[in-house]
Design a protein around this nucleic acid. Structure first.
Lengths: 349, 349
DNA sequence: GCAATTAATGCAAACGTTTGCATACTTATA
DNA sequence: TATAAGTATGCAAACGTTTGCATTAATTGC
């Protein structure tokens, strides 16, 4: 009878599994089994139940469902954004998009939390202890050894975004293949005919800069170029420095004829400095940057870039995490996402 | 005894409120009341309970808590990202950062879902019907009349991000004051001495473009400039068009001496076209853009911009939503966030 | 046609809280 | 000293599912 549904709707009480069961003349457990579809229910019963569910406008109550099953059907994504700036990072966003997509496909909700350091209790620990999610994805910068140990002890599924500092082999993580990225950058520049390649990094102490510098050196040695200490320069987080750095680099007796930049903003400052010096790009000097965002293609000249597939990064992370959640002894996996070269005007000698 | 906690830990069973109660020699309800802090419990009992909670490393189980209380203590943020592109929008991200911050401050989790159109059942409806969140924030583009009606009927708390097309007065929403933004842009350009101001919009059919065009006209009339139909140009979503549009604009007998752009990429194309035409900015022509991101300040010359405080946007939305959740008859509110003018080289005649 | 096997469904406990109501214990009031 | 008015705590139901085990019904094998 429609009335039941109506009455329910009026007192704002939801239709429950019991209502369906009563109406169909079956046990609540049977209804439950139809919903979960993990047991064989006769075609006839199943159809009747489904029909009544439709008729009464039934929607499972996830509060109850999660409680009874002990799962949240949610995954947590930890962000270590100290400020808006970090949060607005395009890099991050495309990964999030991927993570959201995968989660939704698997029927999981995505819970996002900023791991503010000031907090009394870390937002991450809270997520874990209070069972707010079934597993978490966390950036390596948030993956303090203490936290990792805790997660492992609790057998709590987690994936690290970026290669972790410790226990590389005993944790699951996904990272961009930064080393291969700069290696291919160097090789491409060399192939185009540039002979002296400098590299301006954002901050040489970060894990990914270290990897990039490794790849840079490897690239040099593979093409037979000598490695020069002064060709590696560090902005130390302040991208404005790149402007001055470029000027002094070009002042060397042995000035470079190509510059690889750690990000778009660095590259912009480099272009600005080169213009001031009256040097033509790509003719007299080549410029290449890491990342295609936010504006590599809009620069003058458009910048060649080592593009990083952040969508895949997030996709892999989420997929692995969900596998881990659903299968407790799913083995740890380490994944490196390949980079891609986007050749544009700025290195087209 | 430590052993209890240890045993628990070993079988991976969590400590519950009952364990605490038993240990302290008190009823579970008393422990619950201490946790929730909404009833007066004698100082003595409270302290003992807190001590034992600490000792046994108790953490409330939110699955049970949510179920019993009927709340999720989570808010949902709906994104209408058809593709990665939209998702990576900086605009959006700073709002999300704000929303996350507010949620966390109020003890709410933040659940993010992409409202994919293809889905059988809309992700939003699912959130609502299955009680996955206590309230939602949704962009006006996702706020179809049908959905609005549903939410109102269910008395489900929601806030719209951006002025909605219908029921403006009967819903809560937060928007950027786009009209005031272009009005102040026009006035500023006029004050600097520019006489003929054109406006290139992204897509004239969107709600926010309509508002911006309104403000543009209002600004013109306030400074006593005539409105010319051909001074409003539409990229129709393809920002590359801005390049050609600029060239033909400057071809008019009555060419503009200032161009207001709908976003940074449009502005970039405008600059490129002007450079090709050999026109100097800001000397012969002024350029101003909406949005300070992603690269207004890095352009050549650095672009004056109508900056939009997307942090406030998110902050207001989240705060209002949580108020609404906690107080069912909290009245609907409409908020417009003011824009701010960032004057740089590109309009410094 | 009967036992053995398999398929379909029912029963009832359990999940860990919250919360309305009842009760016991204090303290103030007359 | 009895009574009223708090104050602090206990009792037990309820929240809507899931799930192990029991039971019944249907099918198969001989």
């Amino acid at each position: 009878m429609q009335t039941v549904a109506l009455e329910r709707a009026e007192d704002n009480m939801s239709v429950t599994i019991k209502d369906i069961a009563k109406k169909v003349g079956v046990a609540p457990s049977t209804v439950s089994r139809v919903i979960n579809g993990n047991t064989v229910i006769s075609r006839k019963t199943k159809d009747r139940i489904l029909a009544v569910m439709e008729e009464m406008d039934y929607h499972p109550n996830s509060l109850a469902r999660n409680f009874a099953s002990g799962n949240t059907y949610a995954i947590g994504l930890v962000i270590d954004a100290r400020d808006e700036q970090t949060f607005s990072n395009t890099f991050f966003n495309r990964s999030v998009y991927a993570i959201e997509t995968v989660s939704q496909n698997f029927g999981y909700s995505l819970l996002i939390t900023n791991d503010r350091e000031e907090e009394k209790q870390s937002a991450v620990e809270k997520m874990v202890f209070e069972k707010k999610v079934d597993g978490i994805i966390l950036p390596s910068t948030s993956a303090a050894p203490k936290l990792i140990r805790l997660l492992k002890k609790q057998k709590f599924p987690f994936i690290i975004l970026g290669e972790p500092g410790i226990e590389k082999a005993e944790t699951s993580w996904v990272d961009i293949n930064n080393a291969a990225g700069s290696e291919m950058a160097v090789k491409s520049l060399a192939k185009t005919g540039y002979k002296k390649i400098a590299f301006i990094v954002e901050n040489r102490t970060t894990v990914f800069s270290v990897k990039r510098m490794e790849g840079y050196q490897k690239g040099l040695s593979e093409v037979g170029y000598p490695f020069k200490e002064q060709y590696i320069q560090d902005c130390m987080e302040n991208t404005d420095n790149a402007f001055l750095i470029t000027k002094s680099l070009m002042d060397y007796l042995d000035a470079p004829d190509a510059i690889l930049c750690g990000n778009n903003v660095i590259a912009y400052q480099v272009l600005r400095a080169l213009k001031e010096l009256g040097l033509s790009v790509p003719g007299q000097i080549g410029v290449m940057t890491f990342d295609n965002y936010p504006f590599a293609e809009y620069m003058d000249p458009p910048l060649s870039a080592v593009d990083v597939d952040t969508f895949s990064l997030g996709e892999q992370a989420a997929t692995n995490l969900i596998r881990k959640i659903q299968n407790a002894d799913y083995e740890n996996q380490q994944t490196l996402i390949s980079t891609k070269l986007l050749l544009r005007e700025s290195t087209n000698k």
